[in-house]
Amino acid sequence: MKRKLTCIECPIGCQLEIDVEGGHIISLTGNKCEKGPAYARQEIAAPMRVLSSTVLARGLELKMVPVRTSRPIPKAKLLEAMTEIKKIRLDRPVKVGDIIAKAFLGLDADLIASREVSRA
C-alpha cells in the first residue's frame, strides 16, 4: 500500500512516499537524509512525539515551569501525559534538564525541566 508521510525530524519536512506491506516498508523515496527511513519505520509501527508543557510552581520565581519529555513518547499517550502533568506541583528550584518525574507514565522517558528556576 502506498502512503505519503511528511518527515518531522527537521524544518525541511521532506515529503516521503512509502510502500507498506504487512507493516513493513518495502520502498521509500523523497528523503534528503538518513533520518527519513528511521522516522517512517517508527511512524508506521507506533508514532512517537516529544511532549512539552508547563507545570505549576509553588514558591518559585515563575508561576509556570516549562517541561518536556526527555525523549519521544507514544503519540497515543499524549493526553494521558497531560493529565499527569497537570497534577504536578513543583516546589524546588530546578536547572535545565533536571528530572521532574522519572520514568514518566512508566515509560522509557523522564519528564525534565526545560528552564532554570530559582526560589521566589
Binding site: T6, C7, I8, C10, P11, G13, Q15, P47, R49, K75
Partner: peptide, 12 residues
C-alpha cells in the same frame, strides 16, 4: 507555517 508544524500540530 513549516510543513512539520502542520503535521505535528494539526494532523496529529
Amino acid at each position: 507555517g513549516l510543513v512539520r508544524n502542520v503535521v505535528l500540530c494539526l494532523t496529529d
